[in-house]
Amino acid sequence: MSMDIDITLTVNGERVTERVEARKTLVDFVRDDLGLTGSHVGCEHGVCGACTMRVDGVIVRGCLMLAAQCDGATVETIEGLSDSGEVADLQAAFEQRNALQCGYCTPGMLTAAQELLQQAQARNAVPSRDEIREHISGNYCRCTGYHAIVDAVESVAKARAGAKS
């Protein structure tokens, strides 16, 4: 039975083919093999959210998926979301509101928040502060105390809703 697995997947729009150790997690793969170090590694057991990234359109824990499971998948990391401009307004709001200090949690926080904002936009709603807190409940920030993060996400939610109508 194979300890090494060949995978072909799309990462931030680019097709990648690699041979990976079966036990390698997705977050270690993107960091160590692809050099995409925006996704962070904190707890390595699903609790902190620092490794949050998108696989096939939904956010997942990069530490709780194997790279071997991502054959054929579409993976998007903070580098991809950032380069495409998809989260540019969110990044600006985080900076403006001091919603980051050390920045360790920020890539995961932005990726999680963006999912909520997209879901809210799809149903033409602005998420409440409670909904924002619930959606980022799996993302720990040890610096900011969360208020500034919730403020930043809320302001972008309102701005996007306003820009659309």
């Binding site: 300890m3 036990r23 997690t25 390595e44 194997l66 054959d71």
Partner: peptide, 11 residues
């Protein structure tokens, strides 16, 4: 930590 080595098979 990282997991101990294992093989992987997609059924």
């Amino acid at each position: 930590m990282k997991p101990a080595p294992f093989a992987y098979k997609k059924a």
